[in-house]
Each structure stands twice: as structure tokens, then as C-alpha cells.
Amino acid sequence: MVELGCHHCGYRWNYRGESAFYATCPRCHYKVRIPNQKVDQTGELGKIGLEEHSKNLTGIAKIVNTVVSQFGYDENMLIQILLTFQKNFGWIPREVLSEVSKQLGVPLTRVYQVATFYKAFSLAPVGKHKIRVCMGTSCKVRGAPVILERLEGLLGIKAGETTPDLRFTLETVNCLGCCALGPVVVVDGDYWGNLTVRNVEKVVRSYR
């Protein structure tokens, strides 16, 4: 139990919740940072407390903490933090989102809003190999739709889906910045240019 005071409306109350980082003011719903018992004398907002606390974290909370602390618990860095998870996990599990929300003191709705707005994030598991087919203007006029259809045929899934064995995820994107070589496909960061219906099969096979 900690006694908290709201900076916004001045209300004081005893907080019994579980969060180690932030609480919501019962009166005005303002976000209140929870100072740890050992608040640093200079008034630096609970930094010491946070560090102390992070030592006791386990599981997902601990993993999330390593990233969030790397970005200095700065809520402006929300996108960068999520990108880091996306890059390392390939997708962002729900638990990570709520943990990020807790530790960053950003409402879960906003974390979800960001995670669903940007294309880079996926909230469901993806295949081991991610195939991104460029459907940008240049690739389109050079025959990308045929390539996509071929890939869909080869993998037996539609764009945006993952094969049941979790080997491949097929996605379309709007430009990979390699337009001179269209049609372009990127598999796990490797670029394949000048594709034709004939050679696209070879590309897929090399990842099987």
C-alpha cells in the first residue's frame, strides 16, 4: 500500500493496486506515477525506485523491462519499443502489449491504437519465413500481380495469411524501394528482383 497524491486534482488516497509504476487517480483519472519507497532525494521521479523494482521482475515483465528501460521509460518512444519487439519476436503477443502499457504508463488503448495503426506490427504469430511481395506502381506495371498469384498458388494461401505449418507468411507491401528491379519480393530481408513466373518457384524452394 502506498499513499499517492494526484498532481492534477490534488486528491490523496491509499493505492492498493498491483502496478509498480503508475496508478490512475480515482477522482480525475489522471495518470499518477507511483513513487517507490526510496524516492531519490533530488526529486528525480522515482528513477531509483524503478531500477530497484526492475530487479524483482520475472518472465515477460522482465523481458519487457529490459527494452523499456533501454529507452528510458520515455513514452515518446512507444513506437520504437514496439518495433524492437516486432523485430525480435516477429510479432507482438498480447501480454507484451499490456506489460508495455503498464511499465510505460501509457493506457492500453493507446498501445493498441499504435500497434494496429502501423503496418509494421503484427499481433498474431507469423510464419518462420516472411515473404513480402511488392505491389507498388513500378512493380505492378512490370507484372507483380502475376507473381503474387503464382506465390499464392505455390503456398496454398492468400496474401496476408500464414501456412498452417507456420513456415511461410505471405504479405503484400506498397514499395520496397527497389523499383528498378521490379517485380521485387523480399524474403526475410533478402531482396529478389526481376522475378518471373518461372523463377519465383526457385525462390520459394530455397527457403523450404
Partner: peptide, 24 residues
């Protein structure tokens, strides 16, 4: 800052929102 893939966040006001960690 890495952008997370949204065409509209190239627009000036949207880009600044994105830099603040919000929806572009």
C-alpha cells in the same frame, strides 16, 4: 526514429505525431 510503415505518417503533422510515439 524508425517509422513503422504508414504512408500517411509521411505528412508533416502526422510525422510529428509519430515522433511523439503516437498514431501518425
Amino acid at each position: 526514429h524508425r517509422g513503422a510503415g504508414a504512408f500517411v505518417s509521411g505528412e508533416s503533422t502526422a510525422l510529428m505525431n509519430a515522433i511523439e510515439g503516437r498514431v501518425g
